[in-house]
Design a protein around this nucleic acid. Structure first.
Lengths: 211, 211, 211, 211
DNA sequence: GATGAATGAGCCTTCATTCAT
DNA sequence: CATGAATGAAGGCTCATTCAT
C-alpha cells in the first residue's frame, strides 16, 4: 500500500531535520532571545531551508515553544523519577544534582530559561509551570521539611521562604555566572561549579537544621 | 515659592525630555529586552518625537546603555555609602535591604538586569561589573567573613561559595517571582517579599555561624 | 516554437527579476546619483518588491556597483575585441565609434559615469580603472602613436597629453551636451552627434600628423 | 537712533558668517553632491549653528544655488574682462588659461560643476548657461574662427564641432583626472597639468590651421 | 519534503526644516 | 544674530512568513 510506504518514509526521510532545527534553535534562542533570534540564522545553522522551519513548526514562536518543550520541560519532568523520598539530605542532594546536570549539559539552556522567566507572561510560561507542578517536586520537598520541623529535626523556619532560598542558591550561579566569575575573579568555573553542589547543600542544611 | 519648577530658564530647558525618554525606555527595555523594545513605542510613551531619542541619545543601544547606567549603576555605587562596617549581621541586613530597595522600586528593573545578565557579552556588562567592583562591596563582605572564620565565629566554609549563595538568595525571588508565585501558590507577593529579607539573613547566618 | 521564452524551467526562473532591477537602477542612478537614487523608486519602476533588491543585491551601494559592472565594464572590455590594430586612422575611428555606441545607447549611462568620475574615491572607481587597464586600449594606442612619431609620420607631441585630449574630445559632448546644446543653440543633437565622430577624428589627426 | 545702530551692526556683526557657510558648503557640495551633502556637516565645518544656514539662506537648495552663483558664475563672467580680442592663438591661450585658473584654485569646484552638469535639469543650470551666454565668449570665439576660415587661415572645419572639441580638451583633464592619473600612471599631476595648457592649444591649432 | 523567490509590514535611523528663547 | 531643541517625512534595510515549483 502506498499509504504505508509513505508513512514509513515520512519518519525515515528527513534524517533528523526537525532535530537539527531544534538544536540550532536552542542555540539561537539561548543566545539572542525570542525576539533577537533570527529564523534565517537558525535555518542556516541547521543546514536546512528556511521554509522547512515553517513546514515542520508553524511559526517562530511555535518553534520556540517546541524548543522549550523538548529541552526544558522534558528535563524537569524527568526529575520526578530520580526523586525517591528518603533521607532529607539525600533529597536535597538529588535536587541539586538534577539542576546541575540540567543546566550544565548545554550552555544555552540556562540563558533560555532566564529569558523566559524575564518574560513572565511569555508563551510557554504556563507550560513550564505545569511541568514543574506535575513533577510534584516542590510539594514533596515541602512536605518532607514540614515533617522535619514537626519532629524537631529542623528549626521552625518559614518553609516556603526556605525553599525559595534553596532553589535560588541552586540556580543562582547558572544565572549569574558571567557576572560572578568576573567579579569574584573565578578563573576556573568548572571547579567552582563542581564544589558548588556540596557547598549549597551544606549551607542550606546548616541553615535549617535545629541546633 | 519662586523657581519651584524649572520653567523660567532660557537654555538647558527641555522640561525633562531626556528624563521622560529614560523612564519610558526603562519600561520598554524591561518589558521586551533590547531587541524586543521599539523606539517608536518608547517615544510615544515618553510623549516626544521619535527623532529626539536620536538627538539626545545616539542609538537605541546607547539609550539602553544610558538606562542601565542611570538606574542600575547609580544604585549599586550608592550602596557603598550605606555600608559602614560593623556587626556581621548588620552588614548582611544592609546588603539585603539595598537589593530589596533597588529591585522593588520599579518592576522593570529586575527584568532589565535579568536580561542583561543572560546576555553576558551584552553592551553594558562591563560597566555593570565595573560599577560593582568599584563599590568594593564583595571585597568588604568577604573580608568580614574571613575575619569571622579566623576568629572561630563562623564555620570554615568556602567563602566565595557562601557569598554567591547569599547573593542568589537575595536576587532569586526577584528573578523568579513570576514562576515562584504560581508554583508555591503565593497569593500575596508583597507580604512574602516583606518576610523574605529576614528569612534570607536568618537562613544564611544559621548556615555559616559556628555551632 | 518551444522554449521561446524562459517560462518552463523549474529553478533559476525569476523571469528576469534581477535584470528588471538592474535596468530600473541604471535609470535611477543615472538620473539622481548614488545618494539621490531611491530604492523604493527603483523597486517600483522594476515592478518588484523592494525587499527583492536586498535579496538579489545586498545593499543600495552594491546594486550600484553591479549596475556599473554590467553596463559599463562590459562595454569597456568588449572594446578590446573590436580593436585589431591597423591603420592609425582606423584605430582612432574604432575608439570613437565604441565610445559613441556605448554612451548613445542609454542616456543614463553617461550621467552615471559622469557622477562616478566626479566621486573619484567612489565605490567602483577601482573596478572601472581595472576594466579599462585590462582592456589595454590606452597602452595599445599610445604604442601605435609612438611608432608614428618615430617613423616621422606624426609630430613630436606629448603622447599622453594627446591621448587625454582625444579621450576628452570623445567624451566631452556626452558629458556636456545639456549645456552645449543650449549655449551653441544646437537644435538637432542627433545630427550634431552623428557629425561629431568624424569631426573629432579629423581634428585630432590633423593636430598630430606631421606636415 | 537705535535703528541706525542696528543696521550697522547687522553688517558688522557676523564676521563673515555667510562666507564661512559658503566656503564649507562649496566643499561639501563638491565632495558629495547636492543630495549627498549634509546641512549639519556644512554647519559644523563652518563653525556655525545649523539654523543660521536657514537664516542666511533659506534652504539647502538655495544655498547650493548661492554657492554656484558665487564660485562658478562669478568666474565665468569674469572671463569676459580677460578676453580682449586679438591674435587667434592668443585668444585660445587666454581661454585655456582662464579655465585652468578657475578649476585649479579649488578642487571642489570641478566636482561641483561636473555634478551639476550631470543633472542637466538641475536648479542652477539655467543660471550657469545664462552666465556663459552673457559672457559672450563662445560667440566671440566662433566669430574669430569664422573669420579665419574665410581668410583661408583655417581649414574649413565645422566650427561648432571644433569649439566643442576645444572646450572638451580644456575641461577633460579636470573632469577625468582621478581616472586618467591612474590609467596613464601619471605620478605628478601638477606637472602634467602645467604642460597641458600649451599641449591643448598646440594640438587644437595644428588641427584647424590650414596647411 | 525541500527550495529559491517573493512579499508586506515594520524597524532603526537620518535629514531638511522650524521654533522658542 | 545665534542657539539648542523639536518635528515630520522619508529612507535604507530586515524579517517573519508564504508561494510556486
Amino acid at each position: 500500500m502506498p499509504d504505508t510506504e509513505k508513512k514509513q518514509r515520512k519518519k525515515a526521510d528527513s534524517p533528523g531535520t526537525k532535530e537539527k532545527i531544534l538544536a540550532a534553535a536552542l542555540e539561537d534562542f539561548g543566545e539572542h532571545g525570542l525576539s533577537g533570534a533570527r529564523v534565517d540564522r537558525i535555518a542556516q545553522n541547521a543546514g536546512v531551508n528556511k521554509a522547512m522551519i515553517y513546514y515542520h513548526f508553524n511559526s517562530k514562536e511555535n518553534l520556540y515553544r517546541e524548543v522549550i518543550r523538548k529541552h526544558l520541560i522534558r528535563n524537569i519532568t524527568a526529575m520526578r523519577g530520580h526523586l525517591e523520598m528518603g533521607d532529607f539530605e539525600l533529597v536535597l542532594t538529588t535536587v541539586s544534582e538534577t539542576y546541575f546536570q540540567m543546566f550544565n549539559q548545554r550552555e544555552s539552556m540556562s540563558r533560555l530559561l532566564l529569558r523566559e522567566m524575564a518574560h513572565s507572561g511569555g508563551p510557554v510560561t504556563d507550560e513550564i509551570i505545569k511541568g514543574i507542578s506535575e513533577s510534584r517536586l516542590p510539594e514533596q520537598v515541602l512536605s518532607v521539611m514540614a515533617d522535619g520541623v514537626e519532629s524537631g529535626a529542623l528549626r521552625d523556619v518559614n518553609l516556603r521562604q526556605a525553599w525559595v532560598s534553596f532553589i535560588s542558591m541552586n540556580l543562582g550561579y547558572f544565572l549569574l555566572s558571567p557576572f560572578i566569575n568576573r567579579i569574584l575573579n573565578i578563573t576556573e568555573p568548572e571547579q567552582f561549579l563542581a564544589e558548588r553542589k556540596t557547598a549549597v547543600v551544606d549551607l542550606f542544611l546548616n541553615g535549617v537544621i535545629a541546633r
